[in-house]
Design a protein around this nucleic acid. Structure first.
Lengths: 136, 136
DNA sequence: GTGTGTACTTTCTTTTGGTAAGTATGGGCG
DNA sequence: CGCCCATACTTACCAAAAGAAAGTACACAC
């Protein structure tokens, strides 16, 4: 991946056709992929697809997430431009989280994956049971 | 969940419409989701979508993965029924890995996500740069 | 001055991940 | 015969990440 500075500000042909390659360890797209597919990142994107939520709401709907990890995950997704953080200057604090345009794009794809797994969970679990029975 | 006592082994209506809920911490679908979206799981599925590969080939194409993690990841995906392991009884060992039918289904969805990120990597990185400049 | 509510942050412990070395097997080579 | 090679794993050890729980900040109510 070439992210070097250009002498002109016009996008060149190679710029336009440049894309990442997650199979290459140096490519920054792998970092973004990790933010998106991280344990809690997936669930945050999935949850925010249903609309704006505040911190405490996310914490309640995503069962099992700690405040530390939720905070960390939201920051990473915000830095990548997927999540918009809106802090209202009141006390006690009130902060809203929503998806950006690009956030909705990734989240839609995450949702497709999550939905497929949720729908097919039973056959998958059966396969897993058979596997563990066969090979201990 | 099921209030009526059943004397037969026929699947009930509720059985048929049962699906997972990844937002619930107890739901096993969350475990499957983690296998699929794990750091190396995503890349293995993505790589295997291009066809059958042996262990050493995967290790080469997925830059940066250790033998331990590749082995571990392949086992998890095999247990979930996404990956088929075929060991030829020769020496030195020769083992092939390919996707099962359900493996192709998840992998296709993973691919959609990966492709979107690879294509849009540049705007994302720009957003990230702006973010780090603003908030250090 | 004590308690409440929200969104974090910090500290400490546990779990997970990475690195490197070891294991099993038989065939080729000197 | 002794030694090395190739391949697909395991194992042992240490570093990094995640989880649990407590602390912080602020204004207002009592």
């Amino acid at each position: 991946m070439n992210n070097s500075v250009k002498s002109t500000s016009e996008p060149t042909l190679t710029d336009k056709f440049q894309r990442g390659n997650v199979l290459a360890s140096g490519c920054p797209s792998r970092g973004v992929l990790q933010d998106v597919t991280s344990r809690w990142g997936v669930l945050v994107l999935f949850a925010l697809l249903r609309g704006t939520h505040r911190f405490s709401e996310l914490r309640k709907s995503i069962t099992g997430v700690s405040e530390k990890m939720l905070s960390q995950t939201l920051h990473a997704l915000e830095a990548d431009g997927f999540v918009l953080r809106t802090a209202h200057p009141v006390i006690p604090p009130h902060v809203d989280y929503s998806l950006t345009e690009s956030g909705r794009e990734v989240a839609k794809r995450v949702e497709e994956l999550v939905n497929w797994i949720e729908v097919n969970i039973n056959p998958i679990l059966n396969a897993r049971d058979k596997y563990t029975q066969r090979y201990r």
